[in-house]
Design a protein around this nucleic acid. Sequence first.
DNA 1: CGAGGTGTTGAGATTTGTCAACCTACGTGG
DNA 2: CCACGTAGGTTGACAAATCTCAACACCTCG
Lengths: 264, 264
Amino acid sequence: MRYRTDSGPPGKHSAPVSAQVQATAFIAPTARAERSQGRWFDLDPAPGLHPLHQIRLDALTCRTRNLARGEALYRCGDPLEWLFEVHSGMFKTHIASADGRVQVAGFQLSGEWIGLDGIDTGRHAVEAVALEYAQVYAIHYAGLCRLLQEVAALQRQFHRILGREIVRNQALMMLLGGMCAGPRVATFLLDMMQRLQARGYSSTSLVLRMTRDEIGSYLGLTLETVSRVFSRLACDGVLEVKSRQVGLLDVPALRRLARGAEGV
Amino acid sequence: MRYRTDSGPPGKHSAPVSAQVQATAFIAPTARAERSQGRWFDLDPAPGLHPLHQIRLDALTCRTRNLARGEALYRCGDPLEWLFEVHSGMFKTHIASADGRVQVAGFQLSGEWIGLDGIDTGRHAVEAVALEYAQVYAIHYAGLCRLLQEVAALQRQFHRILGREIVRNQALMMLLGGMCAGPRVATFLLDMMQRLQARGYSSTSLVLRMTRDEIGSYLGLTLETVSRVFSRLACDGVLEVKSRQVGLLDVPALRRLARGAEGV
DNA sequence: CGAGGTGTTGAGATTTGTCAACCTACGTGG
DNA sequence: CCACGTAGGTTGACAAATCTCAACACCTCG
C-alpha cells in the first residue's frame, strides 16, 4: 500500500471493511512524489503488475481537470468518452426524472470513480457535479479497455470497481427500502465518516459538503426531515451539529441507530 | 439477432429502450437448435466475434443447473466461482440486514446474469433463490476473465452487463427515494411487463412469480400497501387482478401514474 | 377435510411530507 | 464598514401517506 503525498491530510488508503458501507475505491489514486501527476493502479492485493503497465496507465490519463464548485463534469446524455477518478474534492451525481424532479444518486470522494453510469449505453445516465473545488483524472475509456485487454490484473481490478458500485447501490437500496429517517441519516453519517477516515480525516468530526436538501434527496427524505433528525440527535448528545460541521460524539449510539432500525 | 428455439414462448430478444426501465440483458441466451445446449454471446450490435470464441464460451459453460422453487443458487458469503445466466424461470436476490430483516434486491429473468454481486469482494453479497422451477448456465468466472482477455468485443460486452446493473440499480434508487406507493407499483408492473414482453410473452397480461410480500420488500412497501394499490388500480379499471395473474387494461394510465408520481 | 401460506380489507397509530415563518451566514455593493 | 439580499438551515403546526395490527377469505396440498 502506498501513501498519499498530495493534497489533503496524510493517511493511507485502507481497503473497506464493512459489508454495509463500502469506502475507499479499491484502486486508489496516488501521487508519485511531487514530481509529476503520474498515477497507477494500486495493485498490492493483486500483485504482478509490470512497471511498464504503470507507465501505460499514466499515458491514458491524458487530462487532469479542475472544477469549480457547482461545475458539471458531464451531463445526462453526454457520450461516454472518459472515466474519471476523483483526485480531490467531493462530487455528487444526480438524475432528473421525467417530471423534472431531481434526485441525488451518490456522492463521490477522492479515489472513487465517476462515469461508470455511461458504460451500459455509451451515454451518461446521470450528471456529475463538483460540490467544491475539485480535481479529477480523466481516463480514456477506449484506451483503458485496450490496456485491460493486455493486463489481466488490471482487468480484474476494473471488474472489482464496477462490482463495488453494484454492491454499493444495493446497500443503498436496502437503506431506502427498509429503514426510517433516523437510521437513514445515521447510516449516511457513518458511511461518510468511514470514507473520510479512510482518507486520513478525523474519525469523530466531518464537514459535509452538501446541503440538507441534497442529503435528503439522496436518502429519500425531505430537507426538513434531515434537519429534524440532526437536531434530535444533537439533543440526545449523539451529534454536535454546527451547520455543515458535524461532530460524532457517540459513535456506538449512531451505530445502534443505523443497525437497529428502531427509533427515529 | 437470433431467435429462441427452446422453452417459453417464441419471440426475439430485443434491446431495451426505456431509460427508466431496462429489460433484456444485452447478451442473450440462445439455444443452438436442439442438438446441444451450446451458447454464445449474441453480438449483433457489436459484431466481430470469431466462431472460435463461441466455442470457447461454450466450453466455459461447464454446468447447467436445474433449481426447484425456493432453492438457492448461492448464499451470502459464498465464494464467487461461477456467474450464472438465467435460462428459464425467475429468480430473486435478497439481502439479510444486521438485525435479521430481509429485503429483496431484485428479480432476474431469462437472459439476465446473476452473481455479479460477488465480483467486488470475491464473496456473494446477496442470496439468489429460484421463484419457480428454473434453469441456469453456470459460467466459470476465472475462465470468463481469461476469455475476455483475448476477445475485446466480449470484454466490452461484459462491461456493459456490469454497467447495466449499475444503471438499473440507480433507477431503482430513484424509484425508492422519490416516489410514493402508487408510482412504485406502477413502475414495477411496467418494468415486468416490458421484460416479459421482450421475451415473447403477452404485453397485456403477466403472471407474477413472487408474493406481495416480496414485491413490497423490493419496492420498500409493506405487503398490505402493495395489495391496496393493486385493488385500487383494479377499481379504477387500470388493472385486472386475480391473485398473481395481472392484466394490464390501461397501459397509458399506468404510465401516467408511474411517471407523474402524482396520485396514489 | 383441515392446515398453512397467501391475499384482502378495515381501523387506528405513526411517521413523514407540506407549508410557513423565522433565523443565520455569507457575499456583494454602496 | 455596513446594509442588504440570497441561499441555506431550523422549527412548528397540520395534512397526508404509509405502517401496524387484526380479522377474514382464498387456495393449494397433504
